[in-house]
Nucleic acid binder design. Sequence first.
DNA 1: AATGGCCCCAACCGCCGTTTC
DNA 2: AGAAACGGCGGTTGGGGCCAT
Length: 243
Amino acid sequence: MDCKKEETLRRGPWLEEEDERLVKFITLLGERRWDSLAIVSGLKRSGKSCRLRWMNYLNPSLKRGPMSQEEDRVIFQLHALWGNKWSKIARRLPGRTDNEIKNYWRTHSRKKEEAQNCDKVIEWRGNTGEELLHKYKETEITRTRTTSQEHGFDEVVKEFNQRSMESGKEINGGICGRESYGVMNSPYENRISNWISEISTDQSKANLSEDHSSSSSENNINIGTCWFQETRDFEEFSCSLWS
DNA sequence: AATGGCCCCAACCGCCGTTTC
DNA sequence: AGAAACGGCGGTTGGGGCCAT
């Protein structure tokens, strides 16, 4: 049974049409009950996969483009504070996902580590064994102090917000507009954005034309008709899902 | 132009806590 | 109360793209 189900599930990179379909159904049904949403949408993907695709890529509130210096600093400081708590760190960086931060940290920590090691080699060259041991201990003590005590989270946030204010970036209620970072949208992102706005417009039209005496027939909803033809009693089905 | 190595990141996996029935 | 479903999280992997040779 499960094997048969798994056989039919698609894996690997998402196609543009899959993205489009997913965005449409999330706009209609909301970000919940991912397994059901995956079935209703007709996507041959697991609910988990749908959720991940939305959370890490399609969600319009996501920021694109390279990490800013402020973000970089916050990531490293919070990581020193909390360790690999990527989702926790991500909550402090609006528009960034845990996956993105995790990948970023992995890449850049290696580079920073290498750079630091290089510095140490240069600095320690010419010392005796005793001196090296002493220096190492000193370094470790300083590192522990600066990361865990002096850079508590409140300080980090305060500094981050202050710098953001200075640079004219608005961080209000945890949402930063991508335009505030001067990041241009890719054509694909624009398309996703267009899908969402198209659906929203269509949905409000549909709501207006809908008879409130619950005689809502399929014809009253003219959203993405090509998809609904596949699940003819979609509305009834979706209502039963969320009720 | 071909190729090998490296980097980056999207996607998957497995585990675990929470919610629902 | 307990089983099943769901959702979240951190770790890992695979493939595409870039660059040096």
